[in-house]
Nucleic acid binder design. Structure first.
Lengths: 99, 99
DNA sequence: TCAATTAGTCAAAAAAATATGACTACACAA
DNA sequence: TTGTGTAGTCATATTTTTTTGACTAATTGA
């Protein structure tokens, strides 16, 4: 750590987390249902594997998404909104109203 | 414009605007009262003139802050939350609750 | 008139975020 | 055993954001 970040806006971390490139879109997709790596790669025109990978990891590490390994038939991984993630949905809606 | 940005999360622009470096802190200060360029330069340890200048301009251009030229005694400029800016305060509070 | 305070701008450098393209590894079907 | 789909990683560009430091310009106090 540097010298220490005194004060700070409490919402800052969350704002940063949610504003990265592709994050809002990924979040929006996730509101409608589970999201998958390759699906996003197809749907988000212009997004790279790397970006999607990083976005999903960060969203998961910060507890907004849950990562589920589905051992069924095709064997794949699903990302879904966690409870904390769900709690953000109304905040997003409010944000839209302000725009 | 490039090819065109189809879809998009409606809150995306606002998220981007608010998540830039120093922006959340500046916003937080503004909730307590008018903010000024040199005041922020003093209070935000590590922030550069440039960053503050850009942040204030962007917040103003996007209608979150109002810029007032105070012709009184010391003659200075004050930035205050606009109505739209005020409308964001409860959103920030909600955001804090989620964290 | 000299120095400080106000509020910036500008070009260039440094740092951080994203994209590119190659590569890995497992499962399944033909 | 070759090919397809799954889900990535990694090193290296490229792009964007932020910082640095020099400079401007008007106002005020001494």
């Amino acid at each position: 750590m540097t010298t220490q970040n005194k004060s700070e806006c409490p919402a800052e971390g969350l704002l940063k987390l949610l504003s990265g490139k592709w994050k809002p879109q990924i979040f929006l997709f996730a509101v409608s249902g589970p999201v998958r790596f390759n699906g996003l790669l197809r749907d988000l025109k212009g997004a790279s594997k790397q970006s999607i990978s990083v976005a999903l990891r960060e969203l998961e590490e910060n507890g907004l998404f849950d990562k589920h390994i589905i051992k069924q038939k095709p064997l794949h991984i699903e990302y879904t909104l966690s409870e904390k993630g769900q709690a953000l949905v109304p905040v997003f809606r409010q944000l839209e109203l302000v725009s």
